[in-house]
Amino acid sequence: MKIPGERKGAIAHHGKPLWKRIISCWELYLLLIPGIVLTIIYKYIPMYGVQIAFRDYNPTLGFSGSPWVGLKWFTKFFTNYKSMEMIKNTLLLSLYTILWTFPIPIIFSLLMNQLRFKRFKKLAQTILYAPHFVSIMIVCGMLRIFLSPYGGLITMIASAFGADTSIGLLDQPGNFRSIYIASAIWQDAGWGMIIYMASLSSVDASLHEAAKVDGANTWKRIIHIDLPALVPMIMINLIMSFGNLMNVGFEKAFLLQTDLNTATSEIIATYVYEQGMLKSMYSFSTAVGLFNTAVNILLLIVVNKIAKKTADISFI
């Protein structure tokens, strides 16, 4: 019992002058220091370093000392005949991924929610979530082996259905997106259900009982009771996916890229890596990356605006 006035509770704090309140919280600020320091060094200083996109970076001169070159690197990127292809690849891969992977968890959580066999439900959930824990590296390793022209599992199945397997399936540029998306469904569709399942479990059971009394069958109850309960979560997820349109999963595209499928597998992120890390074109790579971030932020703002107008949900 240091200060008797404290007894009054939270209101008492606001009665005190700001500096006194700050001092009384010094331990809290102490706890924040490591996180803030790391964030400044490894997040904010690199943001400051983005200016090398407009400079010709020279390690000895540093971020702000390197000679200014204006839009040279951006011009170089946009005059490259491959740049439009890369932008197209990035957008299409992202869009198709959303279109295909988005509805499946919703459909399956609606079906799963109606099941009354608890044991079966639990087992199915455990199995469906499992691939999420397999690393992307192993998933891509599996894909490479399954798609190998020499006795690969998928190759064998596909050729039984009459597909052309004279060239490896992964080496055919036309297959890249399908492979990417199918494996995304395999790995994360189950995982995506979790959030919907949880929303469904909060639906009032008496609604279903009442609907049953009124003669509604399972199908009707799914459409009229369960689905509306999911709408807010669906909207949130949809907005988040579109807000991240340009940040399509780099890791899988990179690991599934072969010399022969770059026509569809070369996306902006893989190009940024190649130019920056492999060819050490620091400034050029930063410029391409900055373009990607800028487009993405623009998309985020647009999507956020639309969402605010139509559904009154906002993120920024």
């Binding site: 964030t39 997040k43 690199p46 940024v272 620091y282 990356g289």
Partner: peptide, 25 residues
């Protein structure tokens, strides 16, 4: 302080500037 952290979710320095800072440290 919360905004200070949240900003880093949307804006990043990108691959190369981050790499250069990591190398520098």
């Amino acid at each position: 302080i919360m905004i200070f952290f949240i900003i880093t979710m949307y804006f990043t320095g990108g691959l190369i500037p981050t790499y250069l800072v990591v190398a520098k440290t």
